[in-house]
Simulated scan of single mutants.
Amino acid sequence: MDFVKSQWDGFVGEFKSMNARQLIGQGVNLGLVVTSALIIWKSLMLITGSESPVVVVLSGSMEPGFQRGDILFLNMGSKPARTGEIVVFNIDGRDIPIVHRVIKVHERAAENHLDILTKGDNNYGDDRLLYARGQEWLHMKHIMGRAVGFLPYMGMVTIVMNDYPMLKYGLIGVLALLVITSKE
């Protein structure tokens, strides 16, 4: 506890020793860091064609293929979804995307229309119970992207921060404080 107090006192001392010009410069640096992250994210969206080019697997429904905490990299592509592909989709009225495998595809060539049915590898039945009320099939508008790669367990940080939001806000605060008080 003494270590944390001494570190905090050091941050406060550095902060108090800065003049207005230094504080404004550090605020601009913080803004540049945030802006750079947003630019990188938007660039990835354009390159992959996906509204979310990176997602974290939040449940065990895709085990053993993907574990809870795996990070998936997505690409939308122009081809329609095919049986066996891992897709990430949104359901109307739900905020959290779902990662599951396509198990059936019905194509209507005349209308250029696809009906898609999904299932988690570790689930007993298909996903019709997860879909919106009265919805039997997914359509391409629901698909956010196809999994093209993954990093095992690297998303556990995201899961922990979602489970403990105060930890997330504390970490953001500490990082902002580090950027503001750095002298470089």
Rank of each mutant, 00 (worst) to 15 (best):
D2H: 04
F3E: 02
V4I: 15
S6A: 03
W8N: 00
W8S: 07
G10I: 04
V12Q: 11
S17C: 10
N19Y: 11
R21A: 15
R21M: 14
R21D: 13
I24M: 11
G25Y: 06
G25R: 14
V28A: 14
V28Y: 09
V28C: 10
V28K: 13
N29V: 14
N29D: 04
L30P: 02
L30H: 06
S36I: 01
A37T: 01
L38A: 10
L38Q: 05
I40Y: 14
K42V: 12
K42L: 12
S43Y: 06
M45E: 13
M45L: 05
T48L: 07
V55C: 00
V56D: 12
L58G: 06
S59Q: 06
S59D: 02
G60R: 09
S61A: 04
S61P: 02
P64A: 11
P64T: 07
F66M: 08
Q67A: 14
I71G: 13
F73V: 10
F73I: 09
L74D: 03
N75R: 11
G77K: 01
G77L: 05
G77D: 01
K79W: 03
P80S: 05
P80R: 05
A81C: 14
T83C: 08
T83Q: 10
G84P: 00
G84C: 00
E85N: 03
E85D: 07
V88A: 04
F89A: 00
I91G: 04
G93V: 08
G93K: 11
D95I: 10
D95Y: 09
I96Y: 05
P97M: 03
P97R: 06
V99T: 06
V105E: 09
H106I: 12
R108F: 13
A109L: 13
A109M: 06
N112R: 09
H113P: 02
K119N: 01
D121C: 00
N122F: 00
N122M: 06
N122K: 03
Y124F: 12
D127R: 09
R128I: 12
L130S: 08
L130Y: 04
Y131V: 08
A132C: 03
A132I: 01
Q135M: 05
W137R: 10
H139I: 07
H139V: 09
M140C: 02
I143S: 01
M144F: 02
M144T: 08
G145H: 04
A147Y: 04
G149C: 05
P152Q: 15
Y153E: 12
M154W: 15
M156C: 07
M156T: 07
M156K: 07
V157Y: 13
V160G: 00
M161T: 10
D163G: 09
Y164H: 14
M166R: 09
M166N: 00
L167Y: 08
L167H: 03
L171T: 10
L171I: 13
I172R: 04
V174N: 04
V174P: 01
L175G: 15
I180C: 06
S182F: 13
E184Q: 11
